[in-house]
Nucleic acid binder design. Structure first.
Length: 305
RNA sequence: CGCGAGGUAGAGCAGCUCGGAAGCUCGCCGGGCUCAUAACCCGGAGGUCACAGGUUCAAAUCCUGUCCUCGCAA
């Protein structure tokens, strides 16, 4: 069975590696185009390109998939597998051969682009992975298999994504074997229960200290890779990479005010104290709070709203 | 050539505008206080101020070039 893989970011890399490690015959990788990135806006390829090339796989980066149907037919594959590809697959492409998708949520919950972030953001304690048939509609295809994954309090996007990707590989391998044997069974989703998650904007990362401390911590956990939670102290935009609720601290400050403390970076939230464990000031490196406090000169001790 | 910030003891920073004896917070070593301590007090080690040129009696500080790091924007 020749497999054509569609995927772009890290989650897709793990899935691709998983298929290769399990001996599946991947005949090519389709991913998003190179984009100008970083200082000097140099063109940068998705990381998956490197992995594909290292394994001798051809890489296809088409601007519009629908304009390359003949190219896809020429590749000669039997099944398409998608994982965080980033764009819809046109019907003309889905009509060539069957397509299955790996989605990091317990569908029909969290259909859309940001299931992992959403689960953490909402303070969920459980999420999961679904392998289903790819259809025209967004994440609404019939389900082959799904498995729950626990979200630990200390999990953030990075760690949860890893867990989900590994489970995704496990489920995908299982499904691919069944498809090969002809024993694959799929069931329709309960569309009534579907929930959708939208793309995340940069401004979504702004921390609002009039909210409960735990919700702020959840935002930090969910956005640690991107766009990163932040707030302003005077003119300085402080990006927060790790935080917790300081349950041992007596709140002796106004909401949004820095709680005086020599060794800990604390800010009063609506219902408790938000403690920053790892952060970054403009122009500086990401630092542990204690190190950050050694050198940082506060221009304001109240969060700018 | 997208815009911008910065490279100063092991770490994080100040000093640079107005050139003229290298400082702060932590860490480390030693001593003290204490039932005890991540707390407090005293003392100590540790830096060719990124690199290379230039200006000057004198450069961390001014000028030029190189390397590296980071923020924004995409």
């Amino acid at each position: 069975m020749k497999i054509l893989f569609f995927g772009t970011p890290y989650f897709a890399e793990v899935v691709l590696k998983g298929m290769l490690d399990n001996g599946f015959d991947v005949v090519g990788v389709v991913c998003q185009n190179d984009k100008p990135a970083g200082r000097g806006k140099k063109m940068v390829s998705p990381a998956i390109v490197e992995i594909a090339k290292a394994n001798g796989l051809p890489v296809y980066q088409f601007e519009k998939l629908s304009q390359h149907i003949e190219d896809f037919k020429a590749i000669g594959y039997d099944l398409a597998v998608t994982a965080s590809y980033g764009k819809f697959l046109p019907k003309s492409l889905l009509d060539i051969n069957p397509c299955i998708n790996v989605h990091p949520s317990m569908l029909p919950k969290y259909r859309g682009a940001t299931p992992i972030q959403s689960a953490i953001l909402n303070g969920d304690t459980m999420t999961g992975v679904t392998v289903m048939k790819t259809e025209i509609g967004m994440d609404d295809g019939d389900i082959f298999v799904q498995k729950e994954v626990e979200i630990l309090p200390e999990d953030d996007y990075t760690s949860l994504q890893d867990k989900l990707a590994n489970v995704g590989v496990e489920l995908l391998v299982e499904t691919l074997h069944k498809i090969e044997n002809g024993t694959a069974v799929r069931t329709a989703q309960d569309h009534e229960k579907a929930t959708f998650v939208r793309l995340i904007e940069k401004e979504d990362g702004l921390l609002d200290f009039s909210k409960p401390a735990q919700s702020l911590v959840n935002k930090v956990r969910a956005f640690v890779e991107s766009p990163v939670a932040y707030f302003f102290l005077g003119e300085d935009r402080i990006k927060v990479y790790k935080a917790k609720v300081a349950v041992d601290i007596q709140a002796d400050a106004q909401v949004g005010e820095v709680v005086p403390n020599k060794k800990r970076f604390l800010i009063k939230a609506s219902d408790g104290v938000f403690e920053i464990l790892r952060c970054q000031a403009p122009g500086g490196k990401v630092l542990d709070a204690k190190v950050f406090l050694n050198g940082y000169r506060f221009k304001s001790t109240v969060v700018t709203v």
